Amino acid sequence: MRFALATHDFAAVFHLLCTHSSIRRKDIAHSWGVTAKKVRHVINRRYVVTSYAEISAIADGLRIPGERVGFTPRPWEIGQDTKRRVSLLRRWRECVPWTRAEMAAAINAAATRRKANVSCHVSNIYRWEHTTRTAPHPVYCRLLEDVTGLTIDQLGFQMSRSGEL
């Protein structure tokens, strides 16, 4: 399903939905705003969904997250910032690949270079990956930026007005 969504193969997406769930063609058509006949044509590969408008209508109608189809987060995903933040920071750490202990050690090394009087522990990394807070303390934000090479925004955190760097 993920590959089909990423490649915009909606014939496969619709086929999987119809065969492996209780969703019917007319349900897909209703959520997309078209007829069941058009959905049948997509499944039978007589019609190929290619336009941005159609893809976004399908994604919004079926509540497919924007990142699954190569778009920015959809407007209805706004309340899901915590999940997005967790995945971005954790995804970065796992791509390096580092354990939480290795990432904490790298942040401590960056703190030593910056002469910051802070200490990072595994529990900090875990909390930042799973918390509902807007962002870590500004000192840790700078250290995270140093270690990852990404801005706090790119890591999925949103700074509050009182905590701007």
Rank of each mutant, 00 (worst) to 15 (best):
Q154F: 09
F10D: 15
R85N: 02
K37E: 07
R84E: 04
V122D: 04
W32C: 09
R127I: 09
E77L: 01
R133V: 14
R127W: 13
R68D: 03
S160P: 08
G61P: 14
P138R: 00
R113G: 05
G70W: 08
D60K: 14
G149V: 12
K26C: 14
F14A: 14
G61K: 14
F71E: 13
C141P: 00
I43K: 06
L143D: 01
F3A: 11
P73I: 06
D60Y: 11
D9V: 10
L143W: 00
W98G: 00
D146R: 07
C18S: 09
D27Y: 04
R142N: 12
K37G: 12
H30S: 06
A101R: 03
L5C: 06
Q154A: 15
N124S: 14
P75Q: 12
V96E: 08
R25N: 15
N117I: 07
K26R: 13
I55N: 12
D81L: 06
R114S: 04
L150N: 05
G70F: 06
T99A: 08
Y140C: 00
N117S: 12
W128F: 12
M1V: 10
V34A: 09
R142H: 13
T35S: 15
L144I: 07
A12T: 14
H130S: 15
A57W: 07
D27M: 03
V96P: 01
T148V: 02
K115Y: 08
M159G: 01
I43E: 09
E67M: 10
V147H: 02
Y52P: 04
T148Y: 00
H8A: 14
T99V: 10
T112N: 13
R2A: 00
A11H: 12
S123A: 14
T50G: 01
E94W: 02
I43P: 05
P73L: 04
T35V: 08
E54T: 11
R91G: 01
L17R: 15
L155N: 08
S22D: 11
W76D: 03
S87V: 03
M159N: 02
G79I: 04
E145T: 11
T82F: 06
S119N: 13
A104F: 01
Y52A: 05
A116R: 11
R74P: 03
V49D: 11
A104V: 04
R90Y: 00
F3D: 10
S119C: 13
A101S: 14
V122I: 07
V86R: 00
I58K: 06
F157A: 03
A12K: 15
P65D: 09
Y47N: 00
H121N: 08
C95G: 05
V13S: 11
S56N: 15
H30M: 06
A110N: 05
G70M: 05
G79N: 07
T82V: 08
I125T: 10
A6K: 12
